[in-house]
Design a protein around this nucleic acid. Structure first.
Lengths: 340, 340
DNA sequence: TTTGCATATGTAAGCGCTTACATCTGCCGA
DNA sequence: TCGGCAGATGTAAGCGCTTACATATGCAAA
């Protein structure tokens, strides 16, 4: 037995069971190769000593961890929650463990987290969005760690991704808005720097403007950080314009809800005085009054498919494929025809 | 140089820089011990080769990872989000990395995650609530991994924890409710099995009943899973009673918001026809109409303090202390005197 | 000049595990 | 009876890093 009160090792188990370390290792990793009686004896020793494998050692020797990492921009609210949960469930059913880290929407932190997760032996990574220093892709390639991008798809990057077309989705929403007769459109967007999804959504709005005979450059866009309060402030800012917008298209539900609240605080009726639309269809959207018209995203499906794709990349050394999911307009109460 | 296109090791760097592996290691871990010129040379080699330390090896040799793990019951919504974010920020400022896993409120999964994180070399763990198989505590003790419990405090467990007194907080809320003259109280609670916080909150309600001359056993309690929809269903269930309750005390904001929505759907005025209270003061609570009267919890402070405590336990081998934070009643619009 | 010491660097022993390969056992067919 | 073989187990070589200890270097003091 090794020193008192220290964590038992494979060696301790081997000694205690009277076999070699190889046999113990085999009991744990490929029990089929060990004869029943030996295995029982070994397992008993494992029990008795309360042995747990040392992960570092295992990684070093085997080079597989059955761990995948996900780095999401934020845990502060639920945008990524549902998708991530589904991702985790699928992984779990395939015997992988998910480790999550958050980047707080900051590229340096994301880079740190990527390296941290890779260093800890993640077999694969789930990343959100394409915007990212190219050196990171190179790094992952060299480390031989496959990465899958989610929450967006994009034809013009080589990286596999599973998600939806942010641009087309937002264009569809804006088409709807313009079709109702809105002429003065305000946009409350998240910060576009370093965030391709945000930029694509804005492009989608512009596409629709153009297609409907408006000059996209007349759009009043305000960018602000993620947060209900920020949505509220942006609301005030945009509604100061003369004449004021009849509709506020928001880049996500959180901003939209902030705008909604501020409208109420200002005594403005939604959608009577001003229409408001969101994006993501978080649970929030159905709870507020009036219920938010928004873009529905297949979070759970995305998570599940992402897990499968990533595991495929890991296990079969596959380059991974890109799968595009459909979004759907959720017409609820916060959007209507503009006041005449 | 080692084989083409494989991950560079310390050895490669050492060769390339013309020094020993020890020197490279020192450059990386305690640069002060290495003379400037050598260090520069080594760092250049590191750059050129794109070297990153192998974590497994490092853990094995150094037995420290500067990683802490947190296992939370759910990522599906924001209850733990704010606290966790603060926790992460504080850790980050002290050079620790946070890895998060979720247990989906299931003990077996929590156990798995605990082992996974420990196996991956977590220097310490943040756990939510005290309810947990004792063998896990024993396991952590043997593995020498300190664990801190958050989101609750409890006098009668030896484990250090930082959080608030769920029982007292809920008692205060209930006191307030009863003081307003409510006599028929319904309770929508989360599932109490394996969740000490939920049980304490229920106890708090009973305490207040007792203290105000009511028989706690007359309480109509319904337990349901976490989720807005579940809150809505519980609302229907409780409101079927004759005579029906004048107030619904909910174990958390999510359930309360569900109840709120269903009330609206049923054409019932809140708080006119029925009062509703929550717990947690999530962002949600201020957004719904009417704004939710709830119990405010110092999430960020809790997260920050938890990080400090845990690091103290890790670095100074301290047993850890228990710190209790204050909650505060957030009186908003969803609670008023009962209809006569 | 020599000695002694501080400082910089090198050497090599693990850390706990997996696995290729070697060895041993027992049983089969010839 | 014995060779051959399959199956069970053992042996030992790493995996990539840190660090105690050994060695080398340079400089101040004697």
């Amino acid at each position: 037995m090794s020193s008192i009160r220290s964590v038992p090792t494979l060696d301790d188990v081997a000694k205690s069971a009277g076999v070699s370390t190889a046999t113990v290792s085999r009991c744990l990793n490929s029990p089929g190769q060990v004869v029943e009686s030996t295995r029982l004896r070994v397992m008993r020793a494992v029990e008795e000593l309360g042995y747990t494998p040392n992960f570092g050692a295992r990684v070093m020797a085997a080079k597989r961890t059955f761990t995948v990492g996900a780095i999401i921009p934020t845990m502060e609210n639920a945008i990524f929650a549902r998708g991530l949960q589904a991702f985790q469930e699928e992984l779990h059913s395939r015997n992988y463990t998910l480790l999550v880290a958050s980047s707080a929407y900051r590229p340096e932190i994301e880079e740190e987290q990527i390296r941290a997760l890779v260093a800890r032996g993640a077999d694969g990574l789930l990343l959100i969005g394409h915007d990212r220093d190219p050196s990171l892709r190179e790094y992952l390639r060299r480390q031989n760690v496959p990465a899958l991008v989610a929450w967006t798809v994009s034809a013009d990057t080589p990286q596999p991704s599973v998600g939806f077309d942010n641009r087309a989705a937002m264009r569809a929403m804006t088409d709807e808005v313009l079709k109702l007769g809105h002429k003065r459109v305000g946009v409350i967007s998240a910060i576009s720097t370093g965030n391709d999804r945000v930029r694509q959504r804005i492009e989608g709005i512009r596409d629709a403007m153009q297609a409907n005979g408006f000059d996209p450059d007349t759009l009043a866009i305000t960018e602000t950080a993620y947060g209900i309060e920020n949505g509220a402030e942006a609301f005030d800012l945009l509604m100061r314009a003369e004449p004021r917008p009849t509709v506020l298209i928001c880049g996500n539900d959180v901003l939209a809800v902030g705008a909604l609240r501020r409208a109420r605080e200002r005594g403005l009726d939604v959608p009577g005085d001003v229409s408001i639309t969101g994006f993501d269809d978080m649970e929030l959207a159905r709870i507020v009054t009036p219920a938010l018209t928004t873009v529905g995203v297949p979070h759970r499906e995305m998570g599940r498919i992402a897990a499968r794709e990533l595991i495929d990349m890991i296990e079969n050394d596959s380059p991974g494929s890109t799968v595009e999911l459909k979004t759907v307009l959720k017409m609820r109460e916060s959007l209507s025809v503009p006041k005449p």
